[in-house]
Amino acid sequence: MKKGANEVLFGLYDDEEILLKAVKQAKNDHLDIMDVYTPFPVHGLDPILGLSESRLHVAGFIYGAIGCLFGFLFMTWVFTRDWPIIFGGKPYFSAPAFIPITFELTVLFAAVGMVVTFYVICGMGPGTINPTLDDRITDDKFCIAFNTNDANQDAIDRLKGFFSATGASEVNTKTI
């Protein structure tokens, strides 16, 4: 979706129970929801919207595995090839001594990798401006948004009818 080129019609709801019912209704009416915005994760919303499970944790596992191998192999190289030092009379290659740092690097790679991946996928980062439909959707309002770029007046009326039928407290439009 290009930014600044989307006509959005959205309704604000006061409560997540009303929102869940409305989303169900929208699915039954075959309305094409652009997105749903809530101030906190609403239980049971993902399956109704038909969102598949996030694969971010798969990425996390891969980053963790890379960090694990990197940490262990790097220390092995340092202590056996590059700069061997004797610690406490132990052999140069002492796996138990490498494990804490290997663990730390596994966590570091997984954590940082997942954060970066998340930011890239969501198109977020320093300097990006993410327009919000309404400031209150980060506070106490629950929002269902429809993209009305190609919608004719009939379709818009139908969406407005849907909002009033499902108990939206406000209905607005915005171009983002």
Partner: peptide, 17 residues
């Protein structure tokens, strides 16, 4: 064991063994 460590400089692995 401590003694081995003390004079281990250079051949660490053998002495550690």
């Amino acid at each position: 064991a401590g003694h081995h460590v003390a004079d281990a400089a250079g051949h660490g692995a053998d002495h550690a063994a």
